[in-house]
């Protein structure tokens, strides 16, 4: 029982930062803007979160400022890819260099030449101290879930509702499938895409901040360490749907947790090899279950009004 709780907590911890970023990816790619920039935005979010939380001593302020910082950074990608119709892979790649570069430069400026931030306050955990006291001795006392986890899963529900039950969601999805048709019905494709890309920046910023304010409690250059790219994989793997993305992030989080649990002392597989497991699993699952991926048709295609 105790083990199950531990695995559950670990899985949720590993899955949540990915889930934030991957939901961002879903929103932006559903509207037709490819978002390879998640990694850079997450890094910038992780830095902003830790820095603001450290300076103001308020984790929540750090978390929300990280979202704002993500929005600011990704708006460059939005301008390039929507207004200037740039190649979205290239402008996304640019953000992936700018994000870490800016974070490290500012970190060195703020923390006297060190790329590591001092310890920042963490986001609160869901179960308060008094409850943990009450559950002492039972397996539930290890139920150590951050509030951020709850926010991420609430966002899944929210985005699902937005996409499949509201007019706005329909417009977003249609913009990603056939922007010209949407345009003829009086919806401004550019505005829709701007909103979606900026939302994705906010979410990826949250994802980064969750890393630096909940999983760890400081920023270092290796805080994000490729998770943005894994989130990108989760978007494709989850077939561009909020619920699909949730399951793929959970699967990845579970695989990651397995490596920690199975990699203990006396494991019969070398721990280093075991660390490959989440990545091998992702490829295998893609081969076995996904097949032809269902990309939004206009994903990555710049829209020019009046072009045929």
């Amino acid at each position: 029982m105790n083990n199950i709780i531990l695995i559950l907590t670990g899985t949720l911890m590993h899955a949540t930062p990915l889930l934030f970023a991957a939901l961002g990816g879903v929103i932006s790619e559903s509207s037709g803007v490819m978002n390879i920039a998640l990694e850079g935005v997450m890094t910038f979010g992780a830095f902003t979160g830790a820095a603001v939380a450290y300076v103001t001593n308020n984790a929540w302020l750090g978390f929300f400022m990280a979202g704002l910082a993500g929005a600011l950074l990704i708006s460059l990608h939005a301008i390039a890819s929507i207004t200037f119709r740039a190649d979205q892979t290239i402008s996304g790649t640019a953000i992936n260099f700018l994000g870490p570069g800016l974070s490290l430069l500012l970190a060195k400026k703020m923390f006297n030449g060190s790329a590591l931030s001092p310890t920042a306050p963490k986001l609160p955990i869901l179960i308060t101290k008094s409850l943990t006291e009450k559950w002492r001795g039972t397996p539930l006392e290890n139920l150590n879930i951050s509030v951020g986890v709850v926010i991420a899963f609430a966002l899944v529900v929210l985005i699902w509702f937005l996409f499949y039950r509201t007019k706005w969601g329909l417009r977003i999805l249609a913009t990603g499938q056939h922007p010209a048709a949407v345009d003829t019905l009086g919806v401004n494709v550019y505005v829709m895409r701007y909103i979606c890309v900026i939302c994705s920046g906010v979410l990826a910023g949250f994802g980064g901040a969750f890393m630096s304010l909940s999983v760890t409690s400081s920023f270092s250059p290796s805080t994000v360490c490729g998770q943005g790219f894994i989130a990108l994989a989760a978007v494709i793997f989850g077939k561009w749907t909020p619920h699909g993305v949730m399951f793929s992030c959970l699967l990845f989080g579970f695989a990651k947790e397995c490596t920690t649990i199975l990699g203990g002392e006396g494991a019969f597989i070398p721990p280093v090899l075991l660390e490959m497991f989440p990545y091998v699993l992702t490829i295998l699952v893609l081969v076995l279950f996904v097949g032809k991926s269902s990309v939004p048709k206009a994903n990555g295609v710049p829209y020019l009004r009046g072009a045929r």
């Binding site: 850079g40 390039a80 200037f84 290239i90 402008s91 640019a94 700018l98 994000g99 430069l105």
Partner: peptide, 24 residues
């Protein structure tokens, strides 16, 4: 000069960004 070498990453990112909008 104690100028952080990370500025290179920023410049690189900016160059790639300006290349991406070179159509303009």
């Amino acid at each position: 000069l104690k100028t952080p070498c990370e500025i290179i990453n920023i410049i690189t990112g900016l160059i790639v960004f300006f290349i991406s909008i070179s159509v303009v």
